[in-house]
Design a protein around this nucleic acid. Structure first.
Lengths: 139, 139
DNA sequence: TTGTGTGCAAAATCTTTGCACTTCG
DNA sequence: CGAAGTGCAAAGATTTTGCACACAA
């Protein structure tokens, strides 16, 4: 799990400045394990830095994601969500009928990636997995 | 694989009307294996129904997705993409740098699905897997 | 014929950009 | 001090909604 301090260090090492708005965004992002829209992150960040603008939140989230310090999350409800980079590698399980979404973890696809990598020459380091089925209530 | 005719039948059975714009959207969606933004689907649909509006594309895609006849796909580039419902079994390997896409097969995720099914109570019968990495040329 | 479906235009969101001012280093 | 970072306002892009007309069934 990447801590706030760890992220700040990496930002700094990458040549970016540590500012109050950035601290606030990072803290807001790490506040819980969920993923949040830029607007939600902004709302939380305001608590720590009352002057921070939504624009800065967008820019900071993009920066963090590009540096691998945060992750972009995509779900049916609200695309463009972000989560701390190390908040588990979870995927979504969707109910085709009622649309309920559940997160799950523990997918170990490394063997598959290696196999694919050998076959295609690609260096696979990221993936998107979405499962679709029927939830218990809809079966 | 759900065919255009199959989708039309199901729409009809569900009490929805078969119209030219809807046919055009469905055909556009099934035209290839990829997933596309509403705007892309619209552009393709225009070939078959020159009067179809973007709004109708949005509404039709939403309807199809709700009925399970199309799927919403989320990726980093362009959220809100849609694909034919049965295209779930074609997987893509994308190069993050040059965008090259390769298809691959032979993913055997059944053990994972069973495990997830036991844990969550869901009956998993479809999935979307997308791998992202660097192609040999870009490494 | 009837009411679902459609297109248009406009509204509501969401995201990005330009620019002068701040502030970290 | 100098350049990166910020906030504001405005522009762009995307998605939704209201409404009168069109057309499947």
């Amino acid at each position: 799990m990447l801590t706030e301090q760890g992220i700040l260090d990496q930002l700094s090492q990458a040549g970016y400045r540590i500012t109050r708005p950035r601290r606030a965004v990072i803290a807001a992002l790490l506040e819980d394990e969920g993923h949040h829209s830029p607007a939600e992150v902004h709302e939380r960040a305001l608590v720590r830095c009352p002057t921070v603008g939504l624009v800065t939140v967008y820019r900071t989230l993009e920066l963090l994601a590009d540096l691998g310090l945060a992750r972009r999350i995509h779900t049916d409800d609200g695309c463009h969500g972000y989560a701390g980079a190390s908040h588990g590698h979870h995927h979504h399980l969707l109910c085709r009928h009622c649309g309920a979404a559940v997160e799950f973890e523990g997918c170990d696809l490394s063997p598959l990636f290696e196999k694919i990598g050998r076959t295609t020459g690609y260096c696979v380091d990221e993936h998107l997995l979405e499962l679709i089925g029927l939830c218990p209530a809809c079966q």
